[in-house]
Write a protein that binds this DNA or RNA. Structure first.
Length: 354
DNA sequence: AAGGCGCGCAACCGCTATACC
DNA sequence: TGGTATAGCGGTTGCGCGCCT
């Protein structure tokens, strides 16, 4: 090996291409084809290395390149393909007519990755994010994003708000696991974290048993929405919460996953693809579940902290009533007080080091 | 009006794979 | 079979632009 890069050539121009250079390159390739890229610059009268010419042609000047904004279908396809292929941008690009690998890569890094993160999905594994550290590190971004939503449309706003709800819920759940999984009596700091003055407003003064019960309720609700009891969940949601916006959102996400499955079956190229179907349905269900959570929360927005705790304590185990109480409880876990969550995160890191 | 800042995108860098001698 | 040239790929960089203060 030991090949020296072609761009080491002295005196070869680098940096942005001028319109004149573009014209020279296009004219030459139209007349002669690119042939050997190494020899092309000299033949075309360009003071560039062959590699630079090749990149300029393949990423920008090629006549079949489609420019402009990515459509929603293209976005979905990229996410879908990325979940199967990973960072194989060129392979992904072959499935999107007119898009280059570079363009898709850039779009992924600048838009789609953030979008998935905001939805509580790990852009690498395409799974629900459960790792406590990752979640903790994402919270400042989530909070910043939720405070900086001016230019987004209504559905996007709701999705992002829902994603923030979900992330908070996941942190809470991890926190409870942390405490409840300790074989020995839970550390006092963790206890005070869950029920003490640094706890979310709704949990202040709360006993560990109460918190664990509430967590089970929340988990049941979320699991139901994630496909374990979709029909009853949808029915409960419809009766308890006739919100057109959220039902439309739910439908759109179901249509989203169904369309994707159908497309996969039509293509037939990759064979059965459970990973992707799961990605889409879980993405949709998560969004729907959180949409539901937030809208029920909105309905219970005025519940005072002590009233909420009363409801939790008097909750029976039947699915619907516990679900609605858990939703209300959830409202208490979603204070707009960032400081509250900061306290939680601080204490989590302290607890983890013990 | 000007400076700071963040974002998006084109281009580059470094590496691997493949072709060819 | 080994060395070299070339193509292709993915990660990273840096510039330009728009927005904000």
């Amino acid at each position: 090996m030991g090949r020296s890069p072609c761009c080491d050539e002295v005196g070869v121009k680098k940096g942005p291409w001028t319109p004149e250079e573009d014209k020279k390159l296009v004219d030459y390739i139209r007349e002669n084809g690119h042939g050997s890229w190494r020899n092309l610059p000299k033949s075309a009268g360009l003071n560039r290395c062959g590699k630079s010419c090749r990149l300029r042609w393949t990423n920008y000047l090629r006549p079949d390149i489609k420019r402009g904004k990515f459509t929603e279908d293209e976005e979905r396809l990229i996410i879908h393909l990325h979940s199967v292929l990973g960072n194989k941008w060129s392979a992904i690009a072959t499935r999107l007519a007119g898009r280059t690998d570079n363009e898709i890569k850039n779009y992924w890094n600048t838009h789609l990755k953030k979008k998935l993160l905001l939805m509580g999905i790990d852009p690498v594994t395409h799974r629900r994010r459960t790792d406590l550290d990752i979640l903790a590190s994402s919270i400042p971004g989530l909070l910043a994003a939720s405070a900086n939503l001016g230019s987004w449309d209504a559905n996007t706003l709701r999705l992002q708000a829902d994603a923030a709800h979900l992330a908070k819920f996941q942190i809470f759940q991890s926190l409870v696991q942390l405490v409840s999984s300790a074989g020995t009596p839970p550390p006092m700091d963790a206890m005070s974290l869950l029920g003490g003055t640094s706890a979310p407003a709704g949990l202040r003064g709360c006993q560990l048993g109460d918190v664990l019960q509430m967590n089970r309720q929340l988990e049941a609700v979320l699991n139901g929405s994630l496909g374990l009891a979709q029909d009853s969940m949808a029915a409960a949601t419809a009766s308890a919460l006739p919100s057109l916006t959220n039902m439309e959102l739910l439908d759109s996400f179901h249509a989203y996953s169904d369309r994707d499955i159908a497309a996969e079956q039509l293509n037939g190229g990759d064979g059965p693809d459970e990973v992707n179907n799961n990605l889409y349905s879980s993405t949709g269900h998560l969004a729907a579940a959180n949409s539901t959570l937030s809208s029920v929360s909105a309905a219970a927005a005025t519940a005072a902290d002590d009233q909420m705790m009363e409801r939790i304590n008097s909750t029976d185990a039947s699915a619907n009533s516990s679900a609605s109480t858990a939703f209300e409880a959830w409202e208490g876990l979603n204070p707009d007080d960032d400081l509250c969550w900061k306290n939680i995160l601080d204490q989590i890191s302290w607890t983890n080091t013990q």
